[in-house]
């Protein structure tokens, strides 16, 4: 009932087609959106978020057409975790997470004690409760990403759209963020995240969806669709898939020759 169903969606900027006849049904779990730059990943995410409207086809969420929902109704169900936050204003960690609660309050209403409790609870869940009084703009990329993820949880949405969440993070923070996403996906949250790391998909995603030139050309279990052929199609590079112990797989570039 929380399913996201995308049917025959097409979108173009002016005369340049960006997405062509995209069909996708998403159930709880973690979905990776893979594709080279300009393949239409960001446009697809903006369509799901209601920032853009599909010119053809429909997007429904739990049976409701998203284009018919108000921004507030939609934001109660879909949350956005952008790649970078460019705001120059130094809100505190708690203030940043509280903003997720705004969707549940009227125009002139103030946040309630309950909002603060929900925000703090979400911060504890992601292990960033200690950042409540810290200035957001002065935090590391990893800390910011975890706070924004906490905000999405506090928002109450079950579907989370993440725009290249690990880009720009150091290795430790990348793994910490992936771990949180993996946990939350196991608890019934739905993640749709664009990524340039097929290895991360193989690690934590149940599913990978691949885009090239606005066409969704592969969709399935990450281990089934992340193949040397599909990687070649998307990025024009040669790899092989290495089997690791414990059933894990990894992409190894062919130029290494082993």
């Amino acid at each position: 009932m929380h399913d996201l169903i995308i049917q025959n969606v097409a979108f173009s900027y002016g005369k340049t087609p960006v997405l062509n006849n995209v069909n996708l049904t998403v159930r709880p779990g973690d979905v990776s959106l893979l594709g080279p730059n300009g393949s239409g990943k960001s446009t697809l995410m903006k369509l799901i978020l209601g920032i853009l409207k599909p010119q053809k086809g429909s997007i429904t969420l739990g049976g409701d057409e998203t284009s018919r929902l108000s921004s507030r109704e939609l934001a109660g169900r879909v949350a956005y975790v952008p790649q970078t936050n460019t705001s120059p204003f130094g809100y505190t960690g708690l203030e940043m997470v509280m903003m997720g609660r705004s969707v549940h309050r009227g125009i002139f209403a103030r946040y309630t004690k309950e909002d603060e409790e929900i925000a703090l609870h979400a911060m504890e869940r992601l292990g960033v409760a200690d950042l409540r009084e810290r200035i957001f703009t002065r935090l590391s990329g990893g800390q910011r990403q975890l706070l924004i993820l906490a905000r999405a949880i506090a928002q109450g949405a079950r579907l989370l759209i993440l725009d290249e969440p690990v880009t720009g993070l150091d290795y430790g923070n990348q793994l910490r963020l992936l771990e949180r996403i993996y946990e939350l996906a196991g608890e019934g949250y739905t993640f749709i995240k664009s990524t340039h790391f097929p290895d991360h998909s193989l690690l934590i995603s149940g599913r990978a969806v691949m885009l090239k030139d606005g066409v969704l050309f592969a969709d399935g279990g990450a281990q089934e669709v992340i193949t040397p052929e599909n990687i070649k199609t998307m990025y024009d590079v040669d790899i092989r898939i290495a089997d690791m112990e414990g059933g894990l797989r990894m992409c190894v570039p062919s130029f290494l020759g082993r």
């Binding site: 109704e73 934001a75 879909v78 949350a79 956005y80 936050n85 903003m99 103030r110």
Partner: peptide, 23 residues
């Protein structure tokens, strides 16, 4: 003065604000 909550969210930029339910 009473729209501070929404104005805070608008200060994050258009797309992020949209994701937080603010038109």
């Amino acid at each position: 003065s009473s729209m501070g909550r929404l104005i805070d969210i608008a200060s994050l930029g258009d797309e992020e604000a949209r994701g937080l339910g603010v038109n």
